[in-house]
């Protein structure tokens, strides 16, 4: 029953996105212009861009992209539609559907971002499959924790500032793990060295999903 509900809600979000498109196109434009700004800032002195800097800048771009993309997930729903959902679906269904939908969105955006970034600023990655796995985990991790935060922030008056303030500290542990994992992949280290980080990331994701699943009904009620 819950599963069916989640599927319907994801379908609804996808259809809405497909019809409006401006959100998605806007995010693509956001990613590409940010990458291009980075290129122009580094382009003057290309020897400045060492591998750790390359890595850090990529993750910062991904972080800001995901905060901006996911902040919309609850703010764009108008009051009437929320009331309508309230009467027909369960809150657990809503949060799970939003998490899955945001994860899909972030996966696409992160892949586009990586391809464009590597194209413009050069690609020093030595272990590409591992790096893609890191980006995959990163997209899922960002979307799980940010979805709940955006739900909290959308209730407040000054939600766009609040979104950044609330999400950055929560997302830092995840970001540290991701940067370390992607650094290992960049240097082409043996894959077993990233195992610790991989397991911790999965554990953090599980904690965040469970907590969101339990807490969202209370948030939803207001």
């Amino acid at each position: 029953m819950l599963f069916k509900e989640v599927l319907y809600l994801i379908q609804k979000d996808l259809v809405l996105e497909w019809r409006q498109k401006y959100a998605f196109n806007g995010m693509i434009l956001y990613v590409s212009s940010t990458v291009f700004v980075c290129y122009l800032s580094f382009g003057l002195r290309s020897n400045v861009l060492t591998v750790p800097v390359w890595n850090a800048v990529l993750w910062i771009i991904l972080l800001f992209t995901s905060v901006n993309a996911i902040a919309k997930s609850f703010m764009q729903e108008n009051r009437g539609r929320l009331l309508y959902f309230y009467s027909i679906v369960s809150p657990q269904g809503v949060i799970l559907a939003k998490i899955v939908y945001n994860a899909l969105l972030m996966l696409i955006l992160a892949l586009i971002c990586f391809v464009f970034y590597a194209f413009v600023l050069g690609n020093p990655v030595q272990d590409v499959p591992m790096f893609l796995l890191t980006i995959f985990l990163g997209a899922i991790g960002f979307s799980t924790s940010l979805t709940m935060i955006s739900g909290i922030a959308s209730k407040a008056a000054n939600s766009s500032t609040l979104m950044a303030v609330l999400s950055f500290p929560v997302i830092v542990p995840m970001l540290l793990m991701l940067i370390k994992m992607s650094k290992n992949a960049l240097d082409g280290l043996d894959r077993s060295t990233s195992l610790d980080e991989l397991l911790t990331l999965l554990a953090i994701n599980m904690i965040v999903i469970t907590v969101s699943y339990i807490l969202f009904p209370y948030l939803w009620r207001s």
Binding site: I152, K155, V170, I207, V211, Y218, L219
Partner: peptide, 15 residues
């Protein structure tokens, strides 16, 4: 809402 955030943040603080 701050109770919800408090619990969420504590869960993020543990790792």
């Amino acid at each position: 809402i701050s109770a919800v955030y408090n619990i969420f943040a504590f869960a993020a603080l543990i790792p």
